[in-house]
Every structure is written in C-alpha cells, then in structure tokens.
C-alpha cells in the first residue's frame, strides 16, 4: 500500500465510476460527487483486501460508506440518493464474477463455477445488507445535513 498505489487506485476507480455515471446519463453537476464517492468505496475495499485479507468484509464496509455518502449528499443537494448510489457502487459490484461463472458453465468446469458463484452471492449479499442497514437509519439522523432554506 504505497502512496503511489493509493493515488493510482483512487484515480482509476474515480474514472470508472464517473464514466459509468455518464453512461447512466447523470445530471452534469453531480459527476464529480459520484466519482469521488465511488473511489472512496473502492479504496476502503482494497485496504481491507490487501492489508487484512478480508474481501467480503471489505465489500460490505465499502458499500456502507458509499451508501452513507450518497444519503448525506442527497440531503445536502436535495436529489434522490439513487443518483449517487448507482454509479458509485459499480466498482464494488461482482460484475467480473458473473463473467467467470458463465465462463466456467460454458467450459463445463463445475468446481470453478461453484467457487465464483459463492463469491458473487457473498459480495451481492454484502452490498444488499449494507444498503438495507444504511436505509433503515431514520430520517432525523440525517436532517442535520439538510440544505438550509430549500
């Protein structure tokens, strides 16, 4: 985890989240916010993975932080939180695992398929749990972030 490594990962995860945001036709003013929150989520995940070797916990904590940032931003800027959440979660989502699952299925390698299916279900479950927890927090705890005089 050298500083250069952190900088490189920060830049490229921000670029990937921002580019997905543009493909999802995000309002122009929100591109930077969603890129940064995607990069924060990815950095937390990679820190857990590289330092502590805990992948699923990393995805969970990363998704919790992304969901928290999205909810705070949605109160601050009076915009639905989906706008920030959807592109910022993309780097964490097990998209490549789905490719490996289909790859194993079509090559008839069942051990490989099973391994990646379990990983994909664990990661998707971690993300679902993170969203559920953050969205169960009542509104009143987020009201302090609300924009004054809307």
């Amino acid at each position: 985890m050298s500083p250069l490594f952190i900088l490189k990962d920060f830049i490229f995860s921000a670029v990937s989240a921002g580019a997905f945001a543009i493909l999802f036709n995000i309002p122009r003013k929100e591109i930077v916010h969603t890129s940064v929150s995607g990069a924060v989520g990815w950095l937390i995940y990679i820190a857990f993975f590289k330092i502590l070797q805990m992948e699923t916990i990393g995805v969970f904590v990363g998704a919790v932080s992304v969901a928290f940032i999205s909810r705070v931003l949605s109160y601050k800027r009076l915009i639905p939180s989906t706008i920030y959440l959807t592109p910022a979660l993309i780097p964490l989502v097990p998209g490549t695992e789905m490719y490996y699952i289909a790859d194993g299925l079509l090559r008839n390698d069942m051990y490989y398929t099973f391994l990646h299916t379990v990983r994909a279900i664990k990661f998707a479950g971690a993300i679902a749990l993170a969203i559920l927890i953050l969205y169960s927090v009542p509104d009143r705890y987020f009201n302090m972030f609300r924009k004054k005089n809307p």
């Binding site: 959807t86 979660l89 993309i90 989502v93 490719y99 998707a124 993300i127 679902a128 969203i131």
Partner: peptide, 12 residues
Amino acid sequence: LVPGFAITSAAR
C-alpha cells in the same frame, strides 16, 4: 457490458 447495474438493483 457486465451486469453490474442488474446485480445492484437486484440486491436492493
């Protein structure tokens, strides 16, 4: 191309 959006919305 990979179904990242489909997985996120399924999880939600």
